[in-house]
Design a protein around this nucleic acid. Structure first.
Lengths: 191, 191
DNA sequence: CTAGAATCGGACTGGCGACTCCGGTTACGA
DNA sequence: TCGTAACCGGAGTCGCCAGTCCGATTCTAG
């Protein structure tokens, strides 16, 4: 219902759209969601008019970036599930999320602050990720690597929480960061 | 160096200042840090002029509220340390922070987004809390209730992380929330 | 190669909200 | 009780930034 492309979009338009998405992700990640839309347009080598034609609202742009991230995350999860054993796949995914989240959190916050129901906005992509997490978690629990009483909501919440925790630690202090993550993993029962 | 009161502030001024602080805490907590300063003034039964005389900036107001919270938290920690045994005091404090944080997080985020170095801004009050956490943690570790390799930074980060995790869980779903916190506590070695 | 439809760019607008200003009010020392 | 220094209130100012508009500039079908 959202990405209908009745006509396949002119070549330059498609290119600009992609550039905008990339630039937005980069700029917002590096300097926060507060930066002017003009800056994003400039980073994409495009005028603001073009930006707003593709994304009617700053919020819509944020949302698009967030959705794309989640889609990528879902794909990663599937990949890991195929490549690694049940315990390892879960751990690897956890680590992936914890590393990738610091900025995603900000996006979600900004959208929530703008009065957007993030759940609903990312529903489509969210389903995929949740599905992947559910599979990863079930595998790990079946293999006895994770407490059996935990559900997907708690686990995802803990992933976000862990990534948030790391935001408060010195980026240079690797050992401390490792210890913090370790605490959560230990608590999950994944020694 | 900040709360110098050369002259002791006229009675009405002091009262208004206190009301503003209370109103700000209430309003910002209930409706987010995005609400207009005018609303805060109204809630305090005061004009915006008065608000800005006491706090030259919205940001300064936010900061003042945050500092006051941290001071209270520090006092709570001391109290708990006096009243409970080493393990229990630590757990109780952890629970306290996790419950009290959801809004404090927002404050801190807002300040950070405004380009304020939160560390520096809350330094005075922060020291007290950190000191208290350090004592609580040392007690708990001495009593064998917490992994001995953890430092204050990791523990505080995990407290914040845990509170953030709860933000992503259904407020109605008590059991899930409890399980999530339990995971972190178990990981700390305080099962 | 050409028409003309689709897209581009960036100056401009409109609204919002933090902060100022000053005439009126109030607390408090003598 | 009175004078005055300190404080109050809220209408108005000012800067900022999301979003619009339209002449200029491509793309692509034929």
């Amino acid at each position: 219902m959202s990405t209908d492309q009745a006509r396949p979009l002119r070549a330059d338009a498609a290119r600009n759209r992609a550039r905008l998405l990339d630039a937005a992700e980069e700029v917002f990640t590096a300097r926060g969601t507060g930066v002017r839309t003009e800056e994003v347009a400039k980073a994409a080598g495009v005028g603001v008019g073009t930006l707003f034609r593709h994304f009617p609202t700053k919020e819509a742009l944020l949302q698009a970036v967030l959705v794309r991230r989640m889609e990528r995350l879902g794909q990663e999860a599937e990949r890991l599930r195929g490549e690694l054993g049940p315990g390892e796949a879960f751990l690897a995914f956890f680590a992936l999320v914890v590393d990738a989240s610091p900025s995603k959190n900000e996006f979600a916050d900004a959208l929530a602050a703008a009065g957007v129901d993030v759940r609903e906005a990312t529903q489509e992509a969210g389903k995929v990720v949740l599905q992947a997490v559910a599979e990863l978690l079930a595998d790990a629990q079946r293999a006895g690597r994770v407490r059996p009483d935990l559900g997907v909501p708690e686990v995802t919440a803990l992933m976000v929480g862990a990534s948030r925790a790391l935001e408060h630690l010195d980026p240079q202090d690797g050992p401390a960061r490792r210890r913090a993550v370790e605490v959560v993993l230990a608590g999950l029962g994944a020694g």
